[in-house]
């Protein structure tokens, strides 16, 4: 795979009016290859949007260069950049009367004449983009009638109709519910892999990015960008270095972030062998969330036994110092009774 887009020692930021410079990130050397889906991750304020704007040629870098196929994009005319690169933004344009087809057709902007009329070939490309995103049944609807998820798909179809070699999406999955976000991520990966374009998405969905991206770019606050495949970045600690907070840590084993609640007590968990693991697993989660640390030692006086009783389903027994103290028939019940027990103890 060839390196489609490459940055050379890029320093991004803003030039202020008094000519001083506000550097957001520096020493950026990354590349994008055709056919790959890359997620750009980074904490708030690390400069993800600034980087994307710079790569898209919407903003000048402080120093360094962005090259597409070996040519600096600052030597491109706006129209030439548009033929190589298209974008999808977070903001939701509100337009009164514009059908979805016309919005997607605006993607042909750099190719059409001064009136913007579509040739039959342009029209075919617009339909192809609409089909690729799966919004055929929306083509005649007005943009203003669509849901956020549908609207974002329309904007992706528009970006595709521009026939780019690179598609850049700035937090395009924000505002969407989880199923819609998963759908969109999978769609982007499919587009990248099947249409052989490079897709770069900035996102806050770390979990989803870890699961679906071909590669990740991690932009830590004040640091330089780190690129690699998700699993490598997790193993070498780059992932947790960028995102761990004072009480949020990345659990490598679980592959997700866990947070520490103030400790309220220690419990030993015992489950009868006839029981489903799922009950045990969710009991662990409930206890951890409520601030109990699950241990397996002999000195902890509090023990919880889970068993399946005929007739009454799953039962949790709280045992203090070997004597049966209380029973609970739901996790909610268990947590509230544990609370009152802890107070007594």
């Amino acid at each position: 795979m060839s390196k489609l887009l490459r940055t050379l020692n890029l320093t991004i930021g803003y030039k202020k009016r008094n000519r001083s410079r506000f550097v957001v990130a520096e020493g950026i050397n990354v590349n994008l290859k055709s056919g790959e889906f890359v997620c750009l991750l980074g904490p708030n304020g690390a400069g993800k949007s600034t980087l994307l704007r710079t790569l898209a040629g919407l903003q000048k870098p402080i120093s360094g260069d962005v090259m597409i196929n070996g040519t600096s994009i600052y030597n491109f005319s706006p129209r030439d950049i548009a033929k190589h690169l298209s974008i999808v933004l977070t903001d939701r344009p509100s337009i009164g009367f514009i059908p979805v087809f016309s919005v997607v057709a605006l993607g042909r902007y750099p190719y059409t004449n001064w009136t913007g009329s579509l040739s039959s070939q342009d029209e075919e490309i617009v339909w192809r983009a609409i089909r690729a995103v799966g919004i055929e049944d929306l083509a005649n609807r007005l943009l203003s009638e669509l849901s956020d998820g549908e609207r974002q798909k329309v904007m992706i179809a528009r970006a595709l109709a521009q026939e780019p070699k690179i598609m850049i999406l700035d937090e395009a999955t924000a505002f969407l519910d989880l199923p819609r976000r998963v759908e969109l991520m999978l769609l982007l990966r499919k587009l990248a892999n099947e249409s052989n374009i490079a897709v770069l998405l900035s996102t806050h969905d770390l979990d989803l990015a870890l699961r679906s991206a071909d590669r990740l770019w991690i932009l830590p606050k004040g640091g330089s960008i780190i690129a690699g495949i998700p699993e490598d970045l997790v193993l070498n600690g780059a992932f947790s270095a960028a995102f761990d907070g004072s009480n949020v840590v990345f659990d490598k084993r679980l592959g997700t972030f866990v947070f520490e609640s103030p400790e309220r007590g220690r419990v030993v968990l015992e489950s009868s062998s006839s029981l489903d693991d799922v009950v045990t697993a969710w009991t662990c989660r409930a206890l951890t969330r409520a601030g109990y640390v699950i241990v397996s030692d002999e000195v902890t006086p509090l023990k919880i036994k889970i068993s399946n009783e005929n007739g009454s389903g799953t039962v949790w027994r709280m045992i203090w110092d070997g004597k049966v103290e209380k029973r609970a028939c739901s996790l909610e019940d268990l947590i509230s009774k544990l609370g009152s027990m802890a107070n007594v103890a």
């Binding site: 706006p78 129209r79 548009a82 933004l89 521009q162």
Partner: peptide
């Protein structure tokens, strides 16, 4: 027409 989508999109489509 391009400006209907906002300045960011317009610029990305090659509008000066």
């Amino acid at each position: 027409n391009a400006l209907l989508l906002g300045e960011g999109y317009a610029r990305s489509m090659g509008v000066n």
